[in-house]
Lab assay of single mutants.
Amino acid sequence: MTEYKLVVVGAGGVGKSALTIQLIQNHFVDEYDPTIEDSYRKQVVIDGETCLLDILDTAGQEEYSAMRDQYMRTGEGFLCVFAINNTKSFEDIHHYREQIKRVKDSEDVPMVLVGNKCDLPSRTVDTKQAQDLARSYGIPFIETSAKTRQGVDDAFYTLVREIRKHKEKMSKDGKKKKKKSKTKCVIM
């Protein structure tokens, strides 16, 4: 069974824990209790493949930012979460993405942009803004509501699919490099 290491990042209060708990335990946590770091595991079937999701729910508070490099190193894919009623959390996505790329030393890291709290009427981040940002990053965008469960499975499952595509691409690139290195030079 394939294991996928997913990391949920975003500013404090955007609903990272609520999304994760909704996926794992099928219930909505409405009281806000700032996370330092929590880890969850769940076995699911995605596109006919049974897999184990190892999900790291991270601290959004700035005082825990020193811990970010460590979990970013171990993560295979990242859910970059903002709240649709919090423009600052949307603007912060850029910083999370840049930090992930720096730590992973790669421009090509599996990510999904997630606009959470889409059940709320007080939207300050337009869907088109988020779609445009995701398009500019070359990553999928999904709106979710941890409260109603809308888009929750889709967000995590899409990230797994992005990781699969990335692994497939990397193995193809690896095979191309191996083929090239088999060419021999004969000096007579």
Rank of each mutant, 00 (worst) to 15 (best):
I46C: 06
G77Y: 01
V29F: 09
E37V: 03
D54R: 00
G48N: 04
K178E: 09
H166N: 11
L19H: 14
K128S: 07
R164A: 09
K104F: 13
C118V: 10
A18C: 03
H95V: 04
R68M: 01
V103M: 15
H27S: 09
A66I: 10
T74H: 10
R123S: 12
V14E: 14
G60N: 15
V103E: 14
R97Q: 08
Q131V: 09
R161P: 01
V8Q: 02
C80A: 04
K182W: 02
V160Y: 06
A83G: 14
S65H: 11
A59R: 01
T2W: 05
T50D: 05
Y96V: 13
E3N: 12
I100D: 01
Q61S: 02
G60E: 15
N26T: 06
Q25N: 05
E162R: 05
D126I: 07
A146F: 04
Q70A: 13
D119E: 10
G10L: 01
P34T: 15
G151T: 12
Y71H: 14
K104S: 14
G174C: 10
V160N: 05
K42F: 01
L52N: 03
M67Q: 12
I55N: 15
L52V: 09
G75S: 15
V160C: 12
E63F: 01
D33F: 02
K176E: 13
K5N: 03
Y157L: 10
L79G: 00
A146G: 15
K128Q: 07
R149G: 12
Y96R: 08
K165Y: 14
K88C: 12
I100H: 01
A155S: 11
V9M: 14
S136V: 07
C118H: 08
D154H: 08
L6V: 06
K167R: 04
F90E: 06
K128W: 05
V109M: 07
Y40R: 00
K104A: 14
E76Q: 14
V112N: 00
D126P: 07
I84D: 15
R164Q: 13
N86A: 07
F78L: 07
C51L: 09
S65F: 03
T183S: 08
D173W: 05
Y96E: 13
V152C: 06
E31I: 03
S17T: 01
A66G: 07
A155N: 02
C80M: 13
G115N: 04
C118P: 10
T127S: 08
Y137W: 08
E162D: 08
T35R: 15
K178G: 07
Q61V: 06
D38Q: 00
R41S: 00
I55A: 15
Q99D: 12
D54M: 00
D108W: 06
V109E: 01
E76M: 15
T183Y: 14
A66D: 13
L23H: 09
L19W: 15
L19E: 14
L23D: 02
I24G: 01
E3P: 10
E91F: 14
V9C: 02
I55G: 11
V9N: 02
I24M: 05
T20E: 01
V186C: 07
E31H: 02
L19M: 06
T87C: 02
L133F: 05
M188E: 09
D126Y: 09
K101L: 13
V152F: 10
R41E: 00
V103F: 15
T74R: 06
D38S: 00
R164L: 14
R123C: 12
I21C: 08
L120G: 14
P121G: 13
E62N: 08
G174V: 10
T124H: 09
E63T: 04
G151D: 10
R102I: 11
L159G: 03
C185W: 08
E107S: 11
G138T: 08
M188I: 08
Q99R: 05
L19G: 12
C118L: 08
R68G: 03
R135W: 11
M111V: 09
R97C: 15
K179Q: 04
H27L: 14
L159Q: 01
E49R: 07
K165V: 11
R161A: 13
T127L: 07
F82S: 12
E37Y: 11
V125L: 07
G13Y: 01
V160S: 06
K16D: 15
K128H: 05
K104I: 13
N26Q: 11
I163N: 02
T50I: 06
V103W: 15
D126H: 06
V114H: 00
